[in-house]
C-alpha cells in the first residue's frame, strides 16, 4: 500500500482528500502546514504528497523546496492542490520540483487522473 501525505490547513479539505485517497488504496497521513509536513517527512518519506500552497507557518512552495533538499527528498511524487490557478504559480511549482498540479476545486476523478498520470496508480 502506497502512502500519501496530505498537507492542507483546511480540515475539511484534508478530510475530503483522505476519503478519495483511501478509496484509491492509499495509506494517508495529514499535516496542517508545511513545517509539520517537513517534520513528518524527515521521520519517514511518503510515496506521494498532496500539497496546498497557502498555509500558515510554512507554505507549500517553501515546504517543497525544503523537501527536495532532504536526503531522499527527491523520492516523493508531489502533486500541488491549490486555488492558485495562474500560469506563473504553476510554473513556479514545477520549477521547485512538483510533479503535477491540481487546481481547486477538485474531485475524485481529477485526483485519480492526476495520480495515474504520474505513475502513482
Amino acid at each position: 500500500m502506497k502512502s500519501c501525505l496530505i498537507v492542507d490547513d483546511s480540515k475539511v479539505i484534508r478530510m475530503v482528500a483522505k476519503k478519495i485517497l483511501q478509496e484509491l488504496d492509499f495509506e494517508t497521513v495529514e499535516a496542517e502546514d508545511g513545517q509539520v509536513a517537513l517534520d513528518l517527512c524527515k521521520n519517514q518519506m511518503p510515496d506521494a504528497v498532496l500539497l496546498d500552497w497557502n498555509m500558515p507557518v510554512m507554505d507549500g512552495i517553501d515546504f517543497l523546496k525544503n523537501l527536495r533538499q532532504l536526503p531522499g527528498g527527491d523520492g516523493p511524487v508531489v502533486v500541488f492542490c491549490t486555488t492558485e490557478n495562474d500560469v506563473n504559480h504553476i510554473q513556479e511549482a514545477m520549477e521547485a520540483g512538483a510533479n503535477e498540479y491540481i487546481m481547486k476545486p477538485f474531485d475524485g476523478e481529477i485526483i485519480q487522473a492526476k495520480f495515474a498520470q504520474v505513475g502513482l496508480l
Partner: peptide, 20 residues
C-alpha cells in the same frame, strides 16, 4: 474549463499549449 483541462492533460502540456 478548468475541470476539462485537468482530466488527462499533463500540467506541462497545459502551460505549454494553453493560455488562461
Amino acid at each position: 474549463t478548468q475541470f476539462e483541462v485537468q482530466r488527462g492533460l499533463p500540467v506541462q502540456n497545459l502551460v505549454k499549449y494553453f493560455d488562461k
